[in-house]
Design a binder for these strands. Structure first.
Lengths: 352, 352
DNA sequence: TTGAAAGCGCTAACAG
DNA sequence: CTGTTAGCGCTTTCAA
């Protein structure tokens, strides 16, 4: 089959289609953009001409007049100012947790039917953050979806200050006027804790996440609150970094401190999995000797042995909602800043 | 601080900067694009005007004339034609393997210093594939980097047929005229096999990957060749799907078939990890009783217990090279189609 | 319901 | 070395 012209450069333009259909550019434009008030017969003719010429509208030209890129920036943002060499490390840390993939999936699920697309950006250094802001200021993207890995991340404030549309995953640390979606982490931790208590555990411990991350902090607080409420004013805590390895180390430390423990609440599934590995190494059966509850209900939870009882965080839904909020902010720049908080739910499997 | 105008819409234009600096648009454009032949003094003036006005070049306008979007599509492509409902499943499968994150990291590492950015796209249904092709045809992206999860993926052929610049990760199944980067999988499998043999294993088995994926097929072939060459014409094979769970099941099957096995070559790290889990459950020590070698040297390899001996696939480097090749194809549409094959290397850790 | 014409903001000849 | 000018391809009033 032969094409009228090359797709990439100098492909057919509206003008070409118009000529082929014997109408004006404006009419073709109307048909393509699905605007009413076009004679059905002419619509037919135009569509045929479009097919015949193999026309594809030039996005840059359209963006120039509509002032919309139909692109949004999906930013994974850290706080550090590490050297460029750290990019791979940053990326591999980010992708090691199934969390980010779920965010991407949720975002794409919302964006794609609306023919918008996400540009993937890392913002782990100040130079990278500048690049993100520039990208937006140039109109390369209509707005940003930001997932921070640290509370001190300066990007949200930069973006807000520049007046660029953006939505965060999780509440920002300071008083940044940006919409966000989040989970009721404390409620989730309470659910997990009470499940452990209800199943008869009396010597609980917890593997907390980084306390400089809101999610890590809130999950610990939620656990401690629930424990206090049930008559346990103090319980051993080991802080780790949300990684499998970190969970292993924390579990080992906890075991040394509290050899009789019979229940563990880990602030995410990866650490819960690490805990299970160490527990088994030390000859403790899960859940018979020690019950373990994770958090997130990531893909590793169901795949783990034993399958992890965990607290579900509906990341895909949250991400989709982030995208929805962003779209609203893009369409109405004066859209009020809001937050949407999702409720977690307990998912009981084998580990507790 | 107050801004001259809003960043998003109606921000300052070249014209504004030119007026502020008392020069012509062309001169400002030259300064911004770093073109020589501009009086240093004037350059200063212009830069100040840029700063004063808070100018950011409009990307759409630039793209319209340069015919470059400075955006490339990073496509994760499957073969299926599953319903829309399958998108999350597809995404979670993709991101469960650390592989994709490494690709993204390598791509970004190359692109970012050149101020180009990747748009993340899934192409798991025929509708999604059409969308990818349209995206490119509209000039929204200058080219595509395609990572297929199945050999029968029709996307490469579609893209090639449309004459769009693209580079694949891994050799395509048919005779598609597209450049690609790949690994010498057979050499890698040989490395692993000979390591196992050299350390004294005599009853080897292998957990193969999907045989409809080139990498899966070649790794098995490489293993069998090496075995045959060393006097083992036949060895038990269990095929799995590159997942942790799949590795576990395959290992169990292999154990039933060959209870005395003393060495396992798994076609990727995730399956090797699954094998280790099952082995330990059955009371076999790794590596004392059974040695295990994985493939990829993904992040799980180093994190596993015991740390996995594996074959390194330099995914980040390969991805960066993909991006480099794509850039060449974009710059010179007549660039000859080529392939770059990377050599794997053995990484000895604890499991073998 | 359709067409003519005016730009969107930028780059790139081409003069000077 | 700098300015003038002509578009890039599209959407969108404004008339007809």
């Amino acid at each position: 089959m032969k094409r009228e012209s090359d797709a990439q450069a100098g492909g057919p333009t509206l003008e070409d289609v118009a000529r082929a259909a014997g109408v004006s550019r404006a009419t073709v434009s109307r048909v393509i953009n699905g605007i009413r008030n076009v004679d059905p017969a002419i619509q037919q003719t135009v569509r045929q001409a479009v097919a015949a010429t193999g026309y594809a509208p030039n996005r840059a030209a359209r963006s120039l007049v509509t002032r919309r890129a139909e692109i949004i920036a999906l930013v994974v943002s850290g706080a550090g100012d590490a050297s460029e060499a750290g990019q791979n490390a940053f990326a591999s840390r980010v992708f090691a947790d199934p969390f980010f993939g779920r965010v991407a999936s949720g975002v794409i699920g919302y964006l794609r039917p609306r023919s918008m697309h996400p540009v993937l950006m890392f913002a782990e250094t100040s130079a990278a953050r500048e690049q993100v802001v520039n990208f937006l200021r140039q109109g390369s993207a209509d707005g940003a979806l930001i997932v921070s890995t640290h509370a001190e991340d300066p990007l949200p404030a930069m973006v807000a200050e520049a007046g660029l549309p953006a939505v965060l995953f999780a509440r920002p640390a300071g008083r940044v006027p940006i919409s966000y979606v989040d989970l009721a982490h404390q409620d989730g931790a309470r659910l997990a804790t009470e499940h452990l208590l209800a199943r008869g555990c009396r010597r609980l411990v917890t593997i907390a996440g980084p306390q400089d991350v809101a999610a890590g902090h809130d999950r610990l607080t939620g656990f401690q609150d629930a424990m206090a409420r049930h008559g346990y004013p103090y319980t051993p805590v080991a802080e780790a970094d949300f990684t499998l390895r970190g969970g292993e180390e924390a579990m080992a430390a906890l075991l040394a401190q509290e050899p009789d423990l019979d229940g563990v609440f880990a602030a995410n599934d990866l650490m819960a999995q690490g805990a299970c590995v160490v527990l088994r190494e030390r000859g403790r059966r899960v859940p018979e000797d020690v019950a373990v509850v994770g958090f997130d209900d990531s893909s590793v939870a169901a795949a783990a042995r034993p399958a992890l009882t965990t607290v579900r965080q509906p990341v895909e839904d949250m991400a989709a909602d982030m995208a929805r909020l962003l779209q609203e902010h893009i369409e109405r720049q004066d859209r009020a800043v809001t937050s949407v908080i999702f409720e977690p739910e307990l998912v009981v499997r084998e580990s507790a």
